[in-house]
Amino acid sequence: MTNTAVTANNGVNVEALLGAREALTAAPEAARFVWRAASEWKSGTHTQSSVQRFFGLGEEQSHKQEYVYDTDHPEIFASEDKGSTPVEMVLVGLAGCLTAGIAAVAQNRDIQLNSVTATIEAPMDIQGILGIDADVRNGFDSITVNYRIDADASEEDIAALVAQSQKRSAVFDIITNPTNVHVVVNK
């Protein structure tokens, strides 16, 4: 439905998103995307990864530039701490995805956002990754995202924004649901 009296401006082009949704409903094959990253071991636990190219809308696509990320471990792990830990990168991905979703849904519902901040906590028992206790999993016990949202909307409408954002979030789905992972070694 077109909203004739849109007043909110969250910097999200909802018309373009809705247009894309309509176009991809008609041409579902164009909706097949492939996301990519490349990585290179540097030294110790330091790895550098980069993203630039991806596939979508039936052809090769590219970010405006290459983005580079360093992952490492902190000094208490006897590492050099040249970047965030990989598990922190997962939290970064979740925060980015959920918050982008909140902005998009807010725009679509004509809700002006004034500020959106979140802190994420994810407890982990590292007996798992250290192989001390086979009953302890490697990953997080759970993840808690705490949002603080200042918006021109009721508490209920803000709760609905956050719920809808989770419902449509790729990273939320990736974390909450199993995915087959194929790790292969090429000659």
Binding site: K167, D173, T176, N177, P178
Partner: peptide
């Protein structure tokens, strides 16, 4: 395996 999205 159940989804972790129950709360939402």
């Amino acid at each position: 395996q159940f989804s972790g999205s129950l709360r939402n």
